[in-house]
Amino acid sequence: MLLLLKGAAAATVAWCLASWLLPVTVTAFAPFTALLALQSTVYRSLWDSAQYLGAMAIGTAVAAGFGTTVGVHVWTLAVLVFLAILVARADLLGGQRSQVPVVALFAFVGGGGRIEYIGHLVTSAVIGVCCGLAAHLVIAPSPHTDRARGRVADLSGRTRELLHDLARGAAGEIPVEDLGRDWPHRCEELAAQAARTRGELEQAWENTRLNPRRPWSSAQASLLRCHETVGTVERIGTYLRSIARALAYERQALASPGPAGSSAPVGSSGPTGSSEASASEDFLVSYGELLRDVASALECLDPPHGPEDPGRLRRHVEDAGRRYDEATDRARVSHLDRPRQWPVHGTVLVEAKRVLEEITYLADRAEETRH
C-alpha cells in the first residue's frame, strides 16, 4: 500500500512539474518515468532508472542523427527502427533495453528528431526519475527480515517433520504402501519451497542495499544466516530423497518375501531367510533412531535464529554421531546376503552422514556467530 501511494504521489508531482516547465507534447513522459523509477527496493529503483536513462540517451541519439541529416521519411523510419532494435538486443541495458526503439520512435516521429524536442523529452524523463527516486528515498522501504526468517524457520520445520517420518518408516511404523508414494512427493515439495524461500531472501537482501534506513549490518547478517540455512536445507533435501528411495525399497523387500525380494523367503523357517530379515530389521530400527537424533539436533539448532543452548545442541549432534557409529557397526557385522542389500544399507548410511555433517556445520557457524 505504501508503494502504491508513493507511486501515485510521484506520478502526480512529476506531471505537474512537467506541465509547468515543458511543452504539452512531452509531459506524459514525466509520470511514466516516475512510475518506472519506483520499484520495490531502493537498489532496484536506482538501477532501473540508470538503465532507462541510458536507453533514452541511445534512442534519442539515433533519432537526432537521422532527423538532422536525412529527415523523416518512410525508409528512414524503417532503418531507424531496425538499428534501434538491433541496439536493444545488447545486454548492457538489462530489462530496459526494449525502451531504446520506443524512445527512438517517439523522438523521431513525434518531434522529427529535432534537438529542441529531444531536449524537452529528456528533461521530462529526468523530472519523472527524480520524482520517483525522491518518493522512494524520503520514505524508504524498511529492511525487514522477519518474514524471511519465518519462511526459513518453516522450511526447517518441514525438514524436521520429514526426518521424523523417515525414522518412523525405517522402524516399520508406516504402512509399506505409503512409503514409495508419499516420501518422493514430500521431498519435491521441500525443494520447491526452498526455491521460493531463496527468491524471497534475494528480494529482502536487495532491499538492504543502498537503503538509507538502518540497521544495515544486523539485517544483512540475519539474511546471510538465512541464506546459509536454505542452502543447507536444499542439500539435506537431496540426501533425504535418496534415503527415502532406499528405505522404501528395503521395507517393500522385507514385506514381499520370495525370489524377487530375497535369495530365500524372508518369512521362511530356514536359517538364511530368518537371519537376513533379522539383520535388516535390527539395522533399520537402529537407523530410525539415528534419524530421530538428527531431527532433534536440527530442532535444537533452531535455524535461522540460532541455538539458545549451544551445549544441548552439541550433545544432540554427538548422540547422532554415536547412533551413526552404531548403525555402521551393525551393518558391518551383519550377514547381508540378499541381492542389493549392501548397496541399500550403504546408501542410507552415506546420506545420513552427509546430513549430519550439514547440521554440524550449521552448529559450528552458529557458535562462531555467538562469539
Rank of each mutant, 00 (worst) to 15 (best):
334 S>I: 07
266 V>A: 14
187 C>H: 05
221 A>W: 00
293 D>T: 07
316 H>T: 02
364 D>F: 07
173 E>L: 15
171 A>Q: 15
9 A>W: 02
177 E>R: 13
64 A>V: 04
191 A>S: 14
95 G>E: 02
280 S>P: 01
320 A>I: 10
21 L>W: 15
221 A>S: 11
287 Y>S: 05
304 P>W: 00
264 A>D: 00
252 Q>D: 11
25 T>N: 15
291 L>E: 03
365 R>S: 05
231 G>M: 04
204 A>E: 01
366 A>C: 04
36 L>Y: 02
288 G>Y: 11
197 T>I: 01
271 P>D: 13
311 G>E: 15
274 S>W: 10
229 T>I: 06
51 Q>V: 03
229 T>F: 08
290 L>M: 12
15 W>K: 00
94 G>N: 04
34 A>K: 04
47 W>A: 12
122 V>R: 10
80 L>D: 06
104 A>H: 08
132 G>L: 07
58 I>D: 06
295 A>C: 11
308 E>Y: 04
147 R>A: 13
175 P>Y: 13
14 A>G: 05
237 G>A: 15
362 L>Y: 03
264 A>G: 05
289 E>W: 13
25 T>S: 14
42 V>G: 04
105 L>N: 07
350 V>M: 14
89 R>D: 10
11 A>G: 14
136 H>R: 09
111 G>P: 01
335 H>I: 11
298 L>F: 15
277 A>F: 10
21 L>R: 07
187 C>K: 08
252 Q>F: 12
323 R>V: 10
89 R>Y: 10
252 Q>S: 13
84 A>L: 01
76 T>M: 11
125 A>Y: 02
223 L>S: 11
79 V>D: 00
211 N>C: 09
151 R>Q: 14
105 L>M: 15
18 A>I: 02
296 S>Q: 08
309 D>Q: 14
114 R>N: 14
242 S>D: 11
299 E>S: 10
312 R>S: 09
318 E>S: 08
305 H>N: 02
316 H>C: 07
159 T>H: 06
285 V>D: 15
199 G>P: 03
330 R>W: 08
191 A>N: 00
143 P>S: 09
81 V>H: 02
137 L>E: 00
230 V>Y: 06
50 A>R: 03
131 C>R: 03
341 Q>S: 15
324 Y>C: 06
131 C>Y: 03
8 A>F: 15
172 G>P: 05
330 R>F: 09
201 L>V: 06
79 V>Y: 11
299 E>A: 07
93 L>C: 02
200 E>Q: 08
225 R>N: 04
110 G>E: 04
172 G>E: 14
95 G>H: 03
47 W>R: 13
299 E>C: 00
